[in-house]
Design a protein around this nucleic acid. Sequence first.
DNA 1: TCCGTTGGCTAATGTGCGTAGCTTACACGC
DNA 2: GCGTGTAAGCTACGCACATTAGCCAACGGA
Lengths: 186, 186
Amino acid sequence: MPRAGLSTQAVVQAAVEVIDEHGVAALTLAAVAARCGVAAPSLYKHVGGLAELKTQVGIRVLNELADRFAAAAMGRSGADAITALMHAYRAYVVAHPARYAAMPVDPLHHPELAAAGIRQLEVIQAALRPWRLDPAGQVHTIRKLRVIAHGFASLESAGGFGLPEDLDETYRQLIATLLDSLPAHP
Amino acid sequence: MPRAGLSTQAVVQAAVEVIDEHGVAALTLAAVAARCGVAAPSLYKHVGGLAELKTQVGIRVLNELADRFAAAAMGRSGADAITALMHAYRAYVVAHPARYAAMPVDPLHHPELAAAGIRQLEVIQAALRPWRLDPAGQVHTIRKLRVIAHGFASLESAGGFGLPEDLDETYRQLIATLLDSLPAHP
DNA sequence: TCCGTTGGCTAATGTGCGTAGCTTACACGC
DNA sequence: GCGTGTAAGCTACGCACATTAGCCAACGGA
């Protein structure tokens, strides 16, 4: 009985691969165990169960997106930075459509996910700084950016757009319109 | 052995009630059967199985929303009509948050759902008529409306907004910004 | 009243989650 | 090199759910 040498992160990695290949609905402990070359109950040595595994996957995905955010915002500011963030969001979802469906929509309500969610938030807040928005204005602006990014991404990743052509143009228009609606900044 | 007097529509109705009360993840044949006062296998006399039941629920929800659309657009035109449609969308989702999660995002790709999806589309196309958009402009505009409505609704119904106050204002701003971005019409 | 159809049932199978309890590989101390 | 404790694997089991098979009774029309 040689050991497989698993770890929590290895199990999460296998779960992400299962999702990428077969969709989020195919994430079962049986599938993950098979991919790890292990019997299903053995996974309980590394994760608390299916629910916890899904939470871990959520954390992983949130952090991956936060990494992309940080990279996209680096060296940019103002409208340029916001545009780069919005395109980084979409690029991640296009690269990993199934994985996006595993990203929790309300991370701040879950203690384990909150840290990863706040990482994303901070990058956006920094990018908005040049506008010197009042707190309420900042809340509305972040919400509107999120509505557009999430709305577009969830529709695109779920195949919700009938005609695939010109999606870039639609997304560009959405971003441009939102930026135009912000007050001018120096 | 008295009969329960079920029908396909009665089973779908029970499924919608289960979703409303316990969330879309709780939609199981066992739960629907219990609500109907029937053993689970008996449901197969009325629906083909869980997958088909979910499709039927999707059709029901799509049509309910299309009904709201038709009612909201009646007697209005132009920006007034678009605004009414957007608020009808959100009002439906606020009234039935769990049900919204059962609404398929890509109805046009499924023959059984397409008719209900097209009903919605036609109401929006009619409301946009005063702008006399060229076909590409119409596609982009409908997509943008959908991104905003679906993005906002899915975040709101999933508890994705941290602060509940002022959500009306955020949504109003999104609609107003989009309408402002359209060319003026006579 | 008779009989075919139809809507209900029980029984059984397969899959998946999760628990209990056993065994053994491996790292560490001597 | 040799115990030995821990932890990583295992099998066996119970439960929930979807689905199929096959039985039986209720209902409605001739």
